[in-house]
């Protein structure tokens, strides 16, 4: 798939220093006056070099973001996984329609009859049902919601 190819070529674009940065900075970024300088020091980098590398990795989309990861449930909001069975011929058009909703935080194509899987993030719990109704109206397709009933483990850190 196109984006997989594009992403795997990025793999080569990350050098050893980039990987050390990604591994070291997946959490614990300092809340100090000059946090980049503080974070750069143990990596043996200057503040300017760290900033330049973060900028480059964001531009190349090796990083999707650099900043706080919010847990919307703690703010009274909701994250809900949802899926649709999209006819292949309409896939790209439907993906565009679904992605246009700001409530859609992530969206993945997967190999299954349920071939589109997305995460809805809303600030109020009732926002989920509302977003689902609007997505169903916009696409003419049923949305199956899979709210989590229990979280056993979440750890999004990966070794670079």
């Amino acid at each position: 798939m196109a984006s997989e190819r594009a992403a795997s070529s990025l793999d080569d674009a990350l050098d050893e220093t980039d990987r050390r940065i990604v591994n070291a900075l997946q959490g614990g970024f300092p809340l100090s006056d000059e946090p980049y300088r503080e974070a750069a020091e143990p990596l043996g980098l200057s503040e300017a070099e760290l900033l330049a590398r973060l900028k480059r990795m964001l531009d190349e989309r090796a990083l999707t973001r650099f900043g706080p990861m919010f847990q919307i449930e703690r703010m009274g909001g909701r994250f809900v996984l949802a899926a649709m069975q999209v006819p292949e011929a309409d896939f790209d058009r439907i993906a565009e329609t679904v992605n246009a909703f700001p409530e859609v935080a992530h969206n993945y194509r997967r190999e299954h009859a349920f071939n589109m899987w997305f995460v809805l993030a809303t600030e109020k719990p009732e926002g989920i049902a509302d977003a689902i109704a609007r997505i169903e109206a916009a696409t003419g397709l049923a949305v199956a919601a899979f709210p989590k009933e229990r979280e056993y483990f979440v750890e999004m850190k990966l070794d670079a």
Partner: peptide, 21 residues
């Protein structure tokens, strides 16, 4: 951060770019 509204602050990698394709 203390109350968990923020899970953590830092780099959010694109796992594809890390080779987790």
């Amino acid at each position: 951060l203390d109350t968990g509204t923020i899970r953590r602050i830092g780099a959010v990698p694109n796992h594809y770019a890390l080779g987790y394709t």
